[in-house]
Design a protein around this nucleic acid. Structure first.
Lengths: 209, 209, 209, 209
DNA sequence: GATGAATGAGGTTTCATTCAT
DNA sequence: TATGAATGAAACCTCATTCAT
């Protein structure tokens, strides 16, 4: 029943192959949450995916390539999302505070959902891997540029520096939320502290009492 | 006749041993700047230090232990320094802006000087290593608590959250200064953006024009 | 079409793997006869088997595991054999002496054929290895219990002690036959001395002149 | 205060050296009871003796040499003792049974007291070490020759074979007494079973009821 | 497409052993 | 005499990676 239709789609690995590839990526994701990136062995991924190492090599050149694929998927979905939080908001007058909170919440939620991949992207970038740097740029560049656009309106602003500082802060706080809470900050306070900095930086105004 | 004096010194490695240990630590430091942490092999450290792997194992159980020693030394020196930047400043009136700039500069300078160790501390902590987490806490906890003390005076503040957000921001921006500059922010703008957030968070006041 | 049959066989290593495993076991056996157990290196076994150390580790966790497999095979074959020498004999009247000689000869022959494995079993057991103790128990327990059964008939017997003493004696003399002969006992005399003790212990009767 | 007297005794390692040597031998003995022979490291012995490895090498070429020294001391004391049990006994008539029991008890007691050294002697001999074989011969040869002398009187005896079998049996049962008891034989039964064999072999007579 | 099997290559780690003090 | 310190040499063991099926 599939012979005919196959002929059309068949370039690149066929459906079975695609499934295997998917299983491998999912296995990689799963392990990423349990293990330090550098401890992930091809054997483990293969076992987790229910295949053999040899099969892994039919789809990826090495572990990094698989992880990169995951990171890439994530960045493509998340970058625009983060940007839209900034862009789609109304930063004038009394809407600004709500917008700031929304942005803070958005970053926190994204890091909550993708902590392990995000960590690897940071790590690999810091270690000088350019493929990951590119992903990171796509991911954080999106909201950063969105900030540039809106900050621009504030007088006395240095748009790139301000936007960069905001995104750095948001990313780092979101990544270490748990630690900060253990240290003494509550979840509610954190989002407010973030929002306060966002609002002040974007609009120059202080938060409402 | 020697019993008494011996008892005091005898347990520690003698001078020669101390020198070797030092050489190994220095070699570790050096390599840390050139290589991803996880790629550092005992063999390499030993060679760099001009000894053999066997000798390395007389002083450290593994690479991590050597790196930890370095991180520890650094944290002991740098933590108090960062704290003093905050504590020793006058945050009242027209001195606040200068204080904010000094803090921003301080963080940037510290990261400039110890980038590679700081990176490893982050990485290892993120991967769940508790010994590094302890170091990290000593390092960032010092300025964080200093911020808590001064932020406390501001009305409507959430001292722990505010302090945590500040330190996160400073650490992350300092760590990624280079990237931010390549992206479009100048060095001068970055310190001003940081200082603006610091001043607003600590005192509630805006920066002077 | 293959689901059903696969399920049965699939878990075990295929024929090729079985062959390799066999080659490794044979190599282990061979070396066991030439080297002290503790001096057997994985490298040597692998070389003797015509493979690499890495291959060895696909089949055994360490040298001990390979040796244990050999010991196990041997014990499964030899234990019942020794037991049958005792059980299948007629110990009444004039058949007893022939039976005793047969048992003595059996032990000597078994030790002749498996000297090196038997030595390792003893050594490892003495050093407290429980897996080898279990093998040893299977091996010597079989004839020992056979003796218990027949000794039982003798009046004034202490079946377990008598059987234990007999098996100990047989195992030790068989293991050191060569040394005893160098010292002055002939092969023919030894089997007779053993047989004399066996007959007396099992039946209470003395050997015929 | 010691200058004068020293001059007389000083050849060979002086008193201090002798003490150190003794400490090393004692440490070796101690470890021998806790560890498989092949796992004894020079470092461990040195630490146990409260010195350094370098010191060990001033007295022994390797671990084996130290163990050999211990084995040698033991054999010199124990060999004659075992022989005297046989030689000094009265094997005639009604004294024979008591003599047999005394011999059995003697072997058991000796193995109880020196189990670990005796085990090493066996092991090393089996592995072909001639220095240990020599010790073993001194140790077991003594009682064996004593048996030869007394067995000689029995008609139809094969003195060397009989003696060899007796000593083998005694040594092996004594060495594995614990195992045999766990298996079901009581201590009291074992000495009687042994004595029965001894008496029958030496005198041709059966034990009294 | 999938995978059992094999292995080169390389880092880890442990010790026995030797000096210089 | 005693010993801190250093190290050569060996095994260990693990993986990434490749074929042949």
């Amino acid at each position: 029943m599939s012979e005919a239709s196959d002929a059309v789609v068949e370039r690149l690995p066929g459906r079975r192959g695609q499934q295997t590839r998917r299983r491998l990526l999912d296995a990689t994701s799963t392990l990423l949450e349990a293990l330090p990136y550098r401890d992930m062995k091809v054997v483990d991924i293969a076992r987790e995916a229910g295949t053999s190492p040899a099969t892994f090599y039919q789809y990826f050149a090495d572990v990094e390539e698989a992880v990169l694929a995951i990171a890439d998927e994530m960045a493509s979905a998340v970058g625009p999302l983060l940007a839209s939080l900034v862009t789609a908001s109304d930063w004038t007058e009394d809407q600004g505070w709500a917008a700031s909170l929304r942005v803070a919440d958005g970053f926190i939620a994204v890091w909550e959902a993708h902590r392990s991949v995000l960590r690897v992207i940071d790590l690999a970038t810091d270690e000088g891997d350019d493929r990951f740097r590119e992903v990171r740029t796509r991911l954080l560049g999106a909201p950063a540029e969105a900030f540039v656009a809106v900050v621009h309106r504030r007088s006395g602003a240095a748009p790139f520096a301000d936007a960069g500082v905001l995104v750095s802060m948001l990313a780092h706080v979101a990544a270490h939320r748990e630690g900060l809470e253990q240290w003494g900050a509550t979840s509610a306070e954190l989002r407010q502290s973030l929002a306060r900095v966002i609002l002040a930086t974007v609009t120059g105004r202080a938060a409402p009492d």
